[in-house]
């Protein structure tokens, strides 16, 4: 079962529909059993870092997510805010601890505030080879909508980057944990191919 984690953040209909293109068993839930049994987990996300973490704690799923990620090694994909929550901490509204699955900090994009948020299509550069990129040309455009970015402690965890006033992480990966800053479910054919690879790759 592909689990789309329900932690009460927006933008879920489209990610559910996109996942259903490649799997007949997609569930939208925050049930602990479902988290434990999921073959793969997608964390969607829109909203603010502290609000989302508060929801995760309220739902009592913080430890469960960490244990399936670290012990069971369930592949986890965080999208946009869902990606940022994988970090050690965030700074949106206030300092806030994240899931700490990939060491790093979420910071405001380093550009004058009049250029924020970063909205629209921008080119993504695959920095390394990865099965996630199978069948996808490099340097295509994907849809971004964010004001914060994920700064990895260990540069090895950077898989792809994007440039907007400066270079930032578009995709991060550490073992079974994957985070995508842009919205693959909103990036037409190129984005859907990434999701397909995440869902279908072993």
């Amino acid at each position: 079962m592909i689990l789309i984690l329900d932690y009460n953040v927006g933008n879920v209909n489209s990610i559910i529909r996109a996942a259903e293109l490649y799997s007949s068993n997609v569930k939208y839930s925050n049930n602990i059993e479902d988290i434990l049994n999921a073959k793969k987990i997608i964390m969607p996300g829109q909203g603010s870092f502290d609000y989302a973490m508060e929801n995760i704690h309220k739902l009592n799923i913080y430890e469960t997510i960490r244990s399936v990620a670290l012990e069971k090694k369930t592949p986890i994909l965080g999208i946009c805010l869902g990606m940022q929550l994988l970090a050690t901490s965030g700074t949106e509204n206030k300092f806030c601890k994240g899931l700490n699955l990939i060491e790093g900090t979420v910071k405001k994009l380093n550009c004058p505030s009049k250029y924020l948020p970063h909205i629209g299509w921008n080119s993504v550069n695959f920095e390394k080879e990865n099965s996630l990129f199978n069948g996808i040309e490099n340097k295509l455009d994907y849809y971004f909508l964010h004001s914060f970015h994920f700064e990895c402690e260990d540069k090895k965890n950077t898989l792809a980057t994007c440039e907007y006033h400066f270079k930032f992480n578009a995709i991060v990966k550490k073992k079974n944990i994957l985070g995508i800053q842009f919205h693959p479910e909103k990036s037409l054919e190129n984005g859907l191919k990434l999701l397909k690879n995440f869902i279908l790759n072993d």
């Binding site: 933008n11 879920v12 209909n13 489209s14 849809y143 919205h183 909103k186 990036s187 037409l188 984005g191």
Partner: peptide, 26 residues
């Protein structure tokens, strides 16, 4: 619609916005 979507018309509460985001609005 696997593309960005903005929805407008008649929105007047936080709940309205919540509902639209859940429906797939970005």
């Amino acid at each position: 619609c696997f593309m960005p979507i903005t929805i407008g018309g008649g929105i007047k509460s936080i709940e309205d916005i919540d509902n639209l985001l859940k429906m797939g609005a970005d």
